[in-house]
């Protein structure tokens, strides 16, 4: 057992977990942040994507200890109170989800994509960048639309700040 200190969604957290604990299990089982999902558990599907120090990573393939001292953001940490993050709002408005299982990972990956590419995103880039996230319902079409829509909204939001 080890004591791990990290910041999750802006709050300092100190937890005692076994050394073999994966970050996704720390989030879901110790901190009850069940928005992050386990899909394939083999780092292929992307349902477990969270941000570690601003980078989108697959939390099923990171030991909790590796995240000690880091800033972790999950799907629960991106809205401002009742106001959805622009990426969440775009997924809702463009019907970018059906069953919703992959959606938290899709949204966390998509925010990272917009952060890296800014307003220069085009459809081809979004499709290429989403290769680490698998959706079995939508056929991706509306997901891609959502990300492109959100890229515009995030640009406007940044300009306003």
């Amino acid at each position: 057992m080890s004591t791990i200190k990290l910041t999750v969604n802006g709050k300092a957290v100190s937890v005692e977990v076994e050394d073999r604990t994966l970050l996704v299990h720390l989030l879901r089982e110790t901190l009850n942040l069940t928005g992050t999902h386990v899909g394939c558990d083999t780092s292929q599907c992307g349902a477990c994507v969270v941000h570690i120090d601003g980078q989108a990573v697959k939390s099923c393939t990171v030991l909790a200890g590796q995240a000690a001292g880091a800033n972790v953001t999950t799907i629960e940490g991106i809205s401002k109170g009742d106001e959805l993050h622009p990426m969440q709002a775009a997924f809702r408005d463009n019907h970018g989800l059906q069953c919703g299982y992959c959606t938290p990972g899709m949204i966390m990956s998509s925010i990272d994509i917009v952060n890296r590419h800014g307003g220069k995103l085009d459809e081809e880039t979004v499709r290429h960048e989403l290769e680490g996230n698998i959706c079995r319902c939508t056929g991706y079409h509306n997901i891609v639309k959502s990300v492109l829509d959100a890229a515009g909204r995030m640009k406007v939001a940044q300009a306003a700040e």
Binding site: S43, V49, Q55, A56, V57, K58, T61, S109, E131, G132
Partner: peptide, 9 residues
């Protein structure tokens, strides 16, 4: 190589 999330790690 891999995908964007894998390339971060």
């Amino acid at each position: 190589l891999g995908d964007p999330q894998v390339r971060y790690r």
